[in-house]
Amino acid sequence: MPDIEWLLREPDRALTLQTGPPFAADDDNWRATIERVIVAPSLHVYLVDAQAHRDMSIEPTHEFTNPFVASQLTIEGRADLDFQSAGRAHATRDNTVFFRPPRQTTVYRLKAGTRFRASGYALSVDRMVRLFEGEVPAALAPLLEPELDDTRFVTARSDKVIRSLAGSLFARGLNGPLRRLMMEGAVVHLLALQAAAAGRHAPRHRPAALSPREREAVAEARRLLLVDMRAPPTLGELADAVGLAERRLNAGFRLLFGATVFETLRGERLEHARIAFEAGGATLKEAAFRVGYNHVTNFISAFRARYGAPPVQFIGRPATRARRRRLTAG
């Protein structure tokens, strides 16, 4: 169970769930109820239940003043999302859509006779980066670049679990802080599932071979990355230091070391922690903090995924030669 305490650490004003009267329509064009819930200054949730009587177009408005990424989760029906110069995406039961509109409005198009029931959320770019603790999945990275001129969007497969979570945002059994906590937790869960789905279906291209200069730059970047694993440089800082673009640096790490920059960092952190445990030189909390994990639960999950057992099984127990070979090979 991930520790989301830091996620909930918003300014005091975020602790009050802000809802206004839902927008309601019942005319020749459609029958609809649309609600916007301000869960926190950096997180808004949208709930839509509409029946279109005619072909129609809708241009929803957002009240974010800072850059944000929106996600559309369809529970029933279909809408076409028109991003103007950036193209179109289909919001259906079988796929979800992430999009970041820098300036242009997004137009939702409904066909006559369509029942469209959906939820969605908008997260500030800064908060989404914090949620991923700086390790943004490659499939979503284009949405989080500092400056964008046109809308960008990413689609991912949906499934029964995602639709069920999206539907849970409509629940009326909770109010006030309890509803806020429920919505915030559901959005975090949805973001994780959607990011994983987007990664599974992202096209994979083998990067071009590295030139000798690039190989030297990537090797130097690895050295700089591991100098202080408690406070490592960001990907941008690392790329600037060695004179490579961020994407090329990550591609170089994959070619030379079989992992991205931050996958390499994570692996080295965990290996250092394992060595410290077996030497009896650190407690669980000390090791987690020293190698750069702010939350012990995240550290334990990553350690178990790498070594097949929780850290407690390694503390004060020197590895046999055979076991060390197996761990190193993994």
Rank of each mutant, 00 (worst) to 15 (best):
A208Q: 14
M128I: 07
H201D: 15
V129K: 15
P146M: 04
N175Y: 05
D150Q: 13
V161A: 13
P146N: 09
P207F: 06
A171E: 08
S164F: 11
D126C: 04
R204K: 12
V136K: 03
A198Q: 04
F153P: 05
N175W: 04
G167F: 08
T151I: 10
L191C: 08
Q194A: 05
A202E: 07
V188N: 09
V161F: 10
H189D: 14
V154R: 02
M128C: 04
P137F: 07
L178S: 10
G199F: 02
D149G: 09
L140A: 06
A202N: 02
L165F: 06
S158A: 14
R206L: 10
E135K: 15
M182C: 00
T151W: 06
R180C: 00
L190R: 03
L165T: 01
M128W: 04
E145C: 05
F132C: 05
H189I: 07
A196F: 13
L169K: 04
L193H: 13
H201P: 00
L169S: 09
E184T: 09
M183F: 02
R204V: 14
M183A: 12
G185L: 14
M182Y: 02
V154W: 02
M182Q: 10
A156V: 12
L144M: 02
A139D: 07
L169M: 12
Q194F: 06
A139L: 06
P142G: 10
H201M: 14
I162P: 03
L148W: 05
V125M: 08
H189V: 10
D149N: 11
E135Y: 09
E184A: 11
P177W: 01
L174K: 11
E135I: 11
I162M: 04
S164V: 08
S168D: 12
R157W: 12
M182T: 00
S168R: 11
A202C: 00
R127I: 08
V187K: 02
A171N: 07
G199P: 02
Q194G: 02
M128N: 04
A198S: 06
L193S: 10
V129G: 08
P203D: 07
D149L: 14
A195M: 04
R200G: 03
M128Q: 12
Q194M: 14
P203Y: 01
S164H: 13
V188H: 09
V161C: 04
F170A: 02
E147V: 15
L181K: 13
L191M: 11
R179Y: 00
A141R: 14
F153V: 06
P203N: 07
R179W: 01
L143V: 01
A195I: 03
P177L: 06
G173M: 09
A202M: 11
L144G: 01
R163F: 05
H205E: 10
V187Y: 00
D126R: 13
R204H: 12
F170S: 01
L143I: 01
F153I: 05
A195K: 03
H201N: 11
L143D: 01
L174P: 03
R200A: 13
G199C: 08
L165A: 06
A202R: 12
A141V: 05
R206Y: 06
V188P: 01
G167N: 11
V129E: 14
L169V: 04
T151Q: 08
E145H: 07
A141Q: 13
D150I: 04
L148I: 04
A138F: 09
P142F: 04
G173W: 11
G173Q: 11
V125W: 06
A202K: 08
H201K: 11
L178P: 00
E133P: 06
A171K: 03
G167M: 08
T151C: 12
